[in-house]
């Protein structure tokens, strides 16, 4: 089955991101296709490489990056939601005149159209949020 995943909450405060990673991993291992993972609302905070959780805890962003590398996953962060919350890639930082960028490897920034396209192209859109 062709699936897409929408992540609507940030890491650690809510379980949504963990559940999304676990679901995505399980689906891929079963041989399903993940068309896209889209991050919206506080979900965009999954994509910051500046988070430094305690060493004895999981690193959610690194889990996404690793998953993206292993399966060539398309991890898309909503630009409008990201701008509000200070998640920037190199281009966006330059464009907005900011002195740094924090987007982690494996993620890319794009528009909400990518979410709609995921809804159109996938057999199921599976949503993780409160």
């Amino acid at each position: 089955m062709k699936l897409s995943v929408l992540v609507n909450e940030g890491p650690y405060q809510h379980q949504s991101a963990d559940s999304a990673i676990q679901f995505t991993t399980a689906a891929l291992k079963k041989g399903h296709e993940i068309f896209r993972v889209f991050f919206y609302h506080d979900g965009v905070n999954n994509g910051t490489r500046f988070a430094v959780p305690p060493k004895d805890d999981r690193n959610i962003t690194e889990q996404w990056t690793a998953l993206s590398k292993e399966y060539n996953l398309d991890l898309v962060i909503c630009i409008a939601a990201a701008q509000r919350r200070g998640i920037l890639d190199e281009n966006e930082a330059k464009r907005q005149g900011k002195d740094g960028h924090n987007m982690a490897d494996g993620f890319r920034i794009s528009g909400l159209g990518q979410l709609i396209e995921a809804g159109i192209q996938s057999d199921r859109l599976v949503i993780f949020g409160d």
Partner: peptide, 19 residues
């Protein structure tokens, strides 16, 4: 919370896709 506002933003963008 921001859910209502960001929901409306999705709806407006989605409208351009003629679904």
């Amino acid at each position: 919370t921001i859910y209502a506002l960001e929901s409306l933003e999705v709806v407006l963008i989605a409208a351009a896709f003629e679904q």
